[in-house]
């Protein structure tokens, strides 16, 4: 094919794109470089390289922010919420696909349509609900909220995906494995 030849035009495009990428990357570079400067250096010139490379700012921030502790919180929230979303919504999507009928249809459409609700609509009463459930200002509280907000999108993606797995594959497996739940945990998830 002609398109695969490396012509002069392509070289021009390549160079332009590299320059563009450098421009795109510049703000991130700037952040990093200024992180290594002293306050006076930043004020006199933001673009200039630091006179001497020093990591004092990073050390200060590490201590002041209690970075390790805060990062641990983020890590716990991320791991727990992603794991929860995956387990809860894949299980639900599996049953909703494999048990067609009005009930499944209604549940799926109801959860899916909540994707258009902006967060700000639910934000104010959510605080109240969280207070009522005594999960406000707790790690597990925010994890549960992430579960709630993550489920619709994950369910939608899993639903489409499970539909594409041929049924015959599954039936052959169920007869040899330990029924539906056993099939789901042992086999379906591996796709």
């Amino acid at each position: 094919m002609r398109q695969n030849k490396y012509s002069a035009g392509k070289l021009t495009v390549e160079i332009v794109m590299i320059l563009l990428a450098v421009a795109f990357f510049f703000p991130l570079y700037l952040t990093f470089v200024n992180g290594m400067k002293t306050y006076n250096e930043v004020i006199t010139s933001t673009v200039a390289l630091p006179h001497a490379i020093q990591f004092k700012n990073f050390a200060t921030v590490w201590k002041q922010l209690n970075f390790a502790g805060v990062f641990m919180n983020s890590l716990i929230i991320t791991v727990a919420s992603v794991a929860g979303i995956l387990i809860i919504s894949s299980a639900a999507a599996y049953q909703l696909v494999r048990t067609p009928g009005r009930v499944s249809q209604i549940i799926f459409m109801m959860i899916l349509s909540s994707l258009v609700i902006p967060f700000q609509t639910m934000m104010v009463p959510l605080v109240k609900v969280a207070k009522d459930l005594h999960i406000i200002n707790t790690l597990y509280g925010i994890i549960m909220m992430y579960w709630g907000f993550g489920i619709p999108m994950a369910l939608f993606l899993f639903h489409g995906f499970i539909k594409s797995i041929p049924r015959e594959l599954e039936e052959a497996r169920i007869s040899t494995a330990a029924g539906r739940p056993g099939y789901f945990s042992g086999y379906c998830c591996r796709f």
Partner: peptide, 25 residues
């Protein structure tokens, strides 16, 4: 029972975190 066991967690969190606040709004 199997159906409920698979679907109810998703429904529970949906009802608690999305539906209730939305209706309350």
């Amino acid at each position: 029972v199997t159906y409920a066991a698979f679907v109810s967690p998703a429904l529970l969190f949906f009802a608690l975190i999305i539906l209730t606040p939305f209706l309350r709004a």
